[in-house]
Design a protein around this nucleic acid. Sequence first.
DNA 1: AGGACTACCGACCGGTAGGTAGAATCGCGC
DNA 2: GCGCGATTCTACCTACCGGTCGGTAGTCCT
Lengths: 194, 194
Amino acid sequence: MPQRKRGPAGSTRERVLQAADRLWGERGVRGASLDDIAREATVTKPTVYYYFADKSALFTAVVCSVLEEHGGALKTAARRGGHARERLISALAYLIGARCSAPRLLRDGGVALTVDQNSQARSAFFRHFFAPLQQILDDGAAAGELREMDTAFAAQALLNLLDPWTGRDPLPGGREPQELATDIVGLIVDGIGV
Amino acid sequence: MPQRKRGPAGSTRERVLQAADRLWGERGVRGASLDDIAREATVTKPTVYYYFADKSALFTAVVCSVLEEHGGALKTAARRGGHARERLISALAYLIGARCSAPRLLRDGGVALTVDQNSQARSAFFRHFFAPLQQILDDGAAAGELREMDTAFAAQALLNLLDPWTGRDPLPGGREPQELATDIVGLIVDGIGV
DNA sequence: AGGACTACCGACCGGTAGGTAGAATCGCGC
DNA sequence: GCGCGATTCTACCTACCGGTCGGTAGTCCT
């Protein structure tokens, strides 16, 4: 039963997490210092260290928290629409609309932080992001809506494909998230062959 | 204290360029310092500054030089095989085999370096990497081998797709570059639909 | 009341980043 | 063998990074 003294209940740790997600999502793990993050969260650096052991612990916490938060919504989105195509569009549209920086963050952290605390973050990524997508592909193949394939490879390809568009920059051709998701899924389901 | 002997004319600048490409390609622009790069090139930091005005000038020079170097080879590869599918496989296989870090470097530099000297690097990327790929798609569509599409979008998607596999990490499933290129092109040309 | 505990902060440390000043050395034309 | 420009060096600066120390205002328990 944690007691709150300063500020609204449970807000400080959460503010630090959000500040780190925002700043690191924009500039990369090496692009924003703990001072920057502390300032953004309107606390001081020792306060950050009060809640997190070190920089890589904060990194792991940020990635896991964001992944869990979006993971539930992603699974929900993936259930919308009975057919594989609609489920894929729904899942991708959510990912794009949410501007979820977690995958980029994870990749960036892998090279920026020497520690491999990323094992925890990596498994969260697999559970919350990769697995739901692969599930849609597996279901689609079982239902005869998609052809037999290496679904792990295809899911990875899908994630790679939309990765640059889950940032904060404008979407290509001024598309809306839903349109972009439709175009991506169209590309990969129908292919570009005749 | 003997100074380093003078190598062949123009070799020092070249060594610095190569060291920066290697180190930045592995660790990102913020992951390797100018001291690291100087050490890798067996010179000292002021020597780096003798050839390049500052860090962002070195960055631009590295990206442009790598892009130009691989751009020619890419265009050659894209001419191998008369049909769109073979030309795509050939081009992608070259990109993967060459372990070309330029696209990642460029993206990374965009967020790491505040300066937008990247306009020069960005246009080199467009000329040497993006345009040849789009050309194959345009030709394929004109020849009736591919369907009508937004070729700029498709080329971007293709580049995104193979981006994580142009690094130094092992290729997925222990594939060879040629196999991976074949799988990627298969995925995007045939699609995953029935 | 008063000790134990939580949540936070100002000041500081060792190390490293990008960048600079200026001296030393080299190859070359004379 | 001498001057000169091109090249490379040693030594240094300032700013900032991750991380720590000691301290303190408020809260809980008895």
